[in-house]
């Protein structure tokens, strides 16, 4: 079988889909791409497997018997499982997409979908995840001021001693900014690095994530010392901490 695109290491992918034909077709194609797919057909089993198994990606149908896909995602995230999730669903309205992303999904694809698009999105998610997980330096802890954050555990401690557990996106944004400590990172760069595809309608979304990071780590969120806005361009992170 041909592979559609550049090589990605074999990933463990959980396919959660109650339509047997679709699940089989997906699994066969993922296998042809060199991945190791597993099929589950109901929400409750899916949640158990996501929590216990160590998957690189979950392809999750929204309408499922027993526990719907959104609930599976929310509950997995609530248990601290950060595995990327790609939603697959017959409902394709903007509201449904936003609900999926709010539940903690990484991407959203409407049925019927194009095989190539699905494979490309899968690959993009896996690559982003690899960037985040993969070449972490030995010391995965980012320190700025009295704050510290461990990008491996998603947990950190803010200046006031509070424990901060970041969401996957927050962590990815923090990492993307910290990697280029002191220089400006544009909103588009962040979008591409953290979201990959344009699943969000605007770059405003990032602004909201930055606000959330400020609220977590800045002693005075209105006068940021670490997360600076560079008007019209993007953001600059300074681990030293300075006034804008």
């Amino acid at each position: 079988m041909n592979e559609t695109s550049g090589s990605v290491e074999a990933a463990r992918i959980l396919v959660v889909e109650d339509e047997l034909h679709l699940a089989q077709g997906l699994a066969e194609n993922l296998e042809a791409e060199g991945h190791r797919p597993e099929i589950v057909s109901d929400g409750a089993t899916a949640l158990k497997r996501i929590v216990t198994g160590n998957y690189d990606l979950v392809i999750l149908d929204v309408m499922l018997p027993e526990l719907d896909g959104l609930a599976v995602c929310e509950q997995a995230r609530a248990q601290g499982i950060m595995t990327p999730i790609l939603f697959l669903t017959a409902k394709g309205g903007v509201d449904d997409r936003i609900r999926g992303l709010e539940a903690g999904g990484d991407d959203y694809l409407e049925k019927p979908f194009h095989l190539r698009e699905l494979l490309l999105r899968t690959q993009a998610i896996l690559q982003r995840w690899k960037w985040y997980r993969g070449d972490l330096p030995l010391d995965s802890v980012i320190r700025f001021g009295d704050n510290e954050f461990d990008s491996r555990t998603f947990e950190g401690r803010s200046w006031d001693g509070c424990l901060q557990t970041l969401t996957q996106k927050e962590a990815m944004i923090l990492k993307a900014l910290a990697e280029r400590d002191g220089s400006v990172v544009s909103r588009d760069d962040l979008l591409e690095k953290v979201w990959g595809y344009e699943v969000f309608p605007s770059t405003r979304t990032i602004d909201n994530f930055i606000l959330r990071l400020r609220r977590r780590f800045e002693p005075e969120p209105e006068h940021p010392r670490y997360f600076h806005t560079v008007r019209g361009v993007g953001y600059r992170f300074t681990s030293e901490g300075d006034e804008t």
């Binding site: 034909h21 077709g25 979908f113």
Partner: peptide
Amino acid sequence: KSPLASLQLSAET
């Protein structure tokens, strides 16, 4: 959409 998605997937495969 379910059988349609499955058909499309099979055809594209």
